[in-house]
Design a binder for these strands. Structure first.
Lengths: 191, 191
DNA sequence: CAAGTGATGGGACTTGGTCTCATCACCGTA
DNA sequence: TACGGTGATGAGACCAAGTCCCATCACTTG
């Protein structure tokens, strides 16, 4: 595969993140992002489906890791064990570099409706992916859906904590999933 | 408030639903929807934030009903009792007329990414609204989030069943919420 | 009957996103 | 070393979503 300046995609992400921080998401045109990255609008849309997607690059990879981990979990294990494995499996993508621009990314997303929307869709994507993976293990529909939803909740809480404090995401996710399970138990106890 | 032909908003919704069904969402321009409703593009965007929103009219009302019901639940009641009240409180909006074009609406949403995205955002909106309402009752953060998420799950399953079989949505929602709770219990039992 | 109000029409304008075609760097091979 | 193939890019036309601004029209109220 031929190339000129390498890493066009990464350059676009960086340019976008910077410009969104400087001027806000809505005040930044795609053409401007491309220009700062030394590219053109055409090329931008060749790398990203739309303007939003430049902020959600790795999400599909994450879903894949989750599904793989659930499939690889021993058949005897319960659904929540598989979900735990799914969260832990994503840990490899939580690099220091990702943590560096994480807060900036979150701030941009929080500032804009379109972006919150896309974020919501990505989370639903995780839930659906895990639900399907669990069903493929023979877990009944509703149990699978509940387990997946709790997993997404734990994932999000874990992500927040990882951004704040750093550390091994695998451990953090295990902890937040345990917290979620405790919350479930106290819920069911109270009436 | 002066007016000409009344119910501009309803006419726009009907026109949109029909055209989406006939030609698909993407092949239908806003100007065309407006034209069929005897209006113009300007007026369309005065009634709806964007093209998607024409399919998600009542959702904000639903969130309001949920929040109100949770606030009105006796203080001694547990979070899931409040969530049940929230779901039941939305039953009044589930009219026969709404059920009539429900399947068509769902089919259109399922056919398009932008619309699934908007739908996901609305569900997150429900979850956030209920979570906040529960926290205002003194429910700890995580328990509130879990209860709200389970509530949204039950709501969605209930909506599907209501579309299929009809009946009183309040009863249906109570049943699906009970099913979700049972699924939670079997989850926690298995390991 | 005049003035005010709220909903609409109309059109200019920006930008996201698609599409098509030309171009250019690199690669393998003769 | 020349040549053709391939894949990434550039360039520009084009359409539709969404914003803005101003004129207009129906209806109400004093």
């Amino acid at each position: 595969m031929g190339r000129w300046e390498p890493d066009a995609r990464e350059r676009l992400v960086r340019a976008a993140l910077d410009l969104f921080g400087e001027q806000g998401y809505e005040n930044t045109a795609v053409a401007q992002i491309a220009e700062r990255a030394g590219l053109t609008k055409s090329t931008f849309f060749r790398h990203f489906r739309d303007k939003r997607e430049v902020l959600f690059g790795g999400q599909d990879v994450l879903a894949g890791l989750m599904v793989g981990a659930i499939a690889a979990t021993p058949a005897e294990a319960g659904p929540l064990v598989a979900v735990e494995a799914a969260l832990v499996a994503t840990a490899e993508t939580f690099t220091d570099e990702r943590r560096a621009h994480g807060p900036q990314r979150l701030a941009v997303i929080a500032s804009n409706d379109e972006l919150r929307e896309r974020s919501a869709l990505k989370m639903v994507g995780f839930a659906v992916a895990m639900t399907d993976a669990l069903k493929r293990r023979g877990v009944p529909e509703l149990e699978a859906a509940v387990a997946a939803e709790l997993g997404v909740l734990a994932f999000n809480h874990g992500y927040e904590q990882w951004l704040e404090a750093g550390g091994d995401f695998g451990e953090i996710a295990r902890r937040t999933l345990r917290d979620v399970r405790e919350a479930v138990r106290s819920l069911d106890g109270a009436e």
